[in-house]
Nucleic acid binder design. Structure first.
Lengths: 177, 177
DNA sequence: GTGTTTTACTTGCTCAGACAGGCAATGGCG
DNA sequence: CGCCATTGCCTGTCTGAGCAAGTAAAACAC
């Protein structure tokens, strides 16, 4: 009785089969929501695998990309760019610093802030990170025509827009609207 | 110089503005991938907020939904259903047990395994969890026609399918096959 | 000047998630 | 029967992430 999925084999690394049908009945109540959940899970998992190969943890690559692109930034700037958390950024920067990818420099104008800048050693990573991103994009959009990609992107952004809107209005403030 | 986003305001709770434009240049290299990332982030954040109100952490609701629907399950079954991790499941079940939502019962046939079953107290949660899911679905798909929802769902599943496929074949092993 | 508020950052807690290691029960095979 | 690989579960460790609280500097008051 308990054995429902006879093919459920490997449990580590890249499990593919189950990810396709994780929640049997719950999918009925919220198909889109659930699809977002599954897609996010897979995407995150895949990105994590690719990033680990180059010595980064998920999230760290975003910090590095911003730094490479914009140059030295304060932590609060990184927080706002990534819509992250100040506490998380403190620790992420510290780990990137320990890994030798970033360096801290006191801000010349603000003693509270420190400027985070990428080290020379980190530049070797840049290519690899960009490769990971393009690889992830290729995998995700494999077999899609340009039109289909545009449609998919539009759909994703539409959903995102809805959530952003909802986040802006915590609870429908008025019945009419 | 460091002040690039003048409107960047609140930093706690539901930040909406930045989420719409988090990665300026990186979005160019991987628009779909990045849209998935942003959507996942928002969706996760919103689900987390709704779940916290009913006393659950993200992920716990999935365990409970499976238990409500399928009845007592071994941990390994839950792991496979959710495509989760055995270690994570150990701790999640322990916390749900401490919260009084599940109970452990030794398996009659396998001394290694224990059966996890929802408590009577947990049934009160079921409605709330289902409400959270439908609320999340409503928010995500607000203003979408039936056709648009179907399109969005298809797009999400198409992307998911691609990632599942890619996960099944770690690195293109052979050109033919 | 002094006082208050805001800002930048840090630390503490708790959670999920991934990985590695380990332990005990299971089940197959000679 | 006994050996041995597998299975189910647990612990330790590391990561991101969220929330709460605290510190120090800055900015803005008066």
């Amino acid at each position: 009785m308990a054995e429902s999925t006879p093919e459920a084999g490997r449990s580590s690394g890249v499990t593919a089969q189950q990810a396709a049908v994780p929640v049997p009945g719950a999918a009925g109540s919220g198909p889109i929501s659930h699809a977002i959940f599954r897609l996010a899970r897979l995407h995150r998992m895949y990105a994590g695998q690719l990033l680990r190969r180059i010595g980064l943890h998920p999230g760290q690559e975003l910090v590095m990309m911003h730094l490479w692109e914009l140059g030295a930034q304060r932590q609060i700037d990184l927080v706002r760019l990534m819509d992250s958390d100040a506490a998380t950024m403190t620790r992420t920067v510290r780990r990137l610093e320990q890994a030798g990818f970033v360096r801290r420099r006191p801000s010349p104008t603000d003693k509270r802030a420190s400027l985070i800048e990428p080290t020379a050693a980190s530049h070797a990573l840049r290519r690899e990170v960009e490769q990971v991103w393009s690889q992830l994009e290729d995998i995700s959009t494999a077999g899609l025509s340009d039109g289909e990609r545009a449609d998919a992107l539009a759909a994703l952004e539409r959903l995102e827009h809805n959530l952003v809107q909802a986040a802006a209005q915590p609870e429908e403030p008025r019945a009419e609207r």
